[in-house]
């Protein structure tokens, strides 16, 4: 996987992109797209659906869609330029993008609606969503979680990117009542498990081991900025592009991790 490298390269063309929150969900998003989602019969897209609820993680989604041949490299090169169509949050209608996200706490509701629609349509399709820990502070996320269980949406799989760093500070220090999270999901009627969100094999295994019959939350413990040592756990990289010197250092330092 060269996704982080690709994202760092793009970071040199635009003044700002969400590098660190993209880096925390690289393995999560990759395991969903390449390990779990079922391809459409025509082999081009997917029959299951993916929703990047944490819209600021979309650089990772773009890089993966590029690798899958769904998004062209030319288009990704035009990221955040007037000639292109890709912005710093996903836009519905762009190749591979199901929903426009960016405002947090919206993805859960949309995913619940999508999952229930597939139930009504008897399609057997599943909905995969990547959520941030921060957006689980939004009440709307829990309205959706409760409703998903009420509707018995066992075709909904939510992956929570637990990178612990909000816009301002560490949630584990500032919002201690956010934890324990797994018990919250389970008391809302979900099945859940907790894994290392940079360990693709562990995430794959966890999903395959689920009992089913209920919506499923995989709580993925991650490191914000994962892969570049000086970005890891440092809030400023939520929304900052590295300078030329920082870029060079990041490339030297880069560890494309998948273990």
């Amino acid at each position: 996987m060269q996704y982080r490298r690709r994202i760092l390269d793009i970071s040199q063309k635009v003044t700002a992109l969400h590098a660190a929150p993209a880096f925390s969900c690289v393995e999560i998003t990759d395991v969903i797209y390449r390990g779990l989602m079922r391809r459409a019969p025509d082999g081009k897209g997917f029959s299951d659906a993916f929703l990047m609820s944490k819209g600021h993680g979309c650089m990772t989604q773009y890089a993966i869609l590029e690798a899958l041949g769904i998004l062209s490299s030319e288009e990704l090169d035009r990221y955040c330029t007037p000639q292109g169509i890709l912005g710093a949050h996903p836009d519905r209608g762009n190749p591979g993008i199901e929903a426009s996200t960016g405002s947090l706490g919206h993805g859960m509701g949309i995913a619940v609606g999508m999952a229930h629609a597939e139930k009504i349509l008897r399609s057997g399709k599943r909905i995969f969503a990547v959520l941030s820990d921060g957006e689980l502070q939004e009440g709307s996320s829990w309205e959706g979680a409760m409703m998903a269980a009420n509707l018995h949406l066992d075709n909904l799989l939510a992956f929570v990117d637990l990178n612990d760093i909000g816009g301002l500070e560490k949630m584990s220090q500032s919002h201690t009542a956010f934890y324990p999270l797994r018990e919250k999901f389970e008391s809302f009627g979900w099945e859940s498990a907790e894994v290392n969100g940079h360990d693709c094999a562990a995430m794959h295994q966890a999903v395959n081991a689920r009992r089913g019959g209920r919506p499923y939350a995989l709580l993925c413990k991650t490191v914000k900025g994962r892969g570049v040592a000086f970005m890891e756990h440092v809030p400023i990289w939520h929304y900052r592009s590295p300078s030329k010197e920082e870029y060079a250092a990041a490339i030297r330092d880069l560890r494309e991790v998948s273990a």
Binding site: A99, M108, G109, V112, G113, M114, A117, L121, S140
Partner: peptide, 15 residues
């Protein structure tokens, strides 16, 4: 909020 969010998701899947 989930009333509207669900409507969006259902609409995206063709309902």
């Amino acid at each position: 909020q989930i009333m509207i969010g669900m409507c969006a998701g259902m609409s995206m899947r063709g309902l």
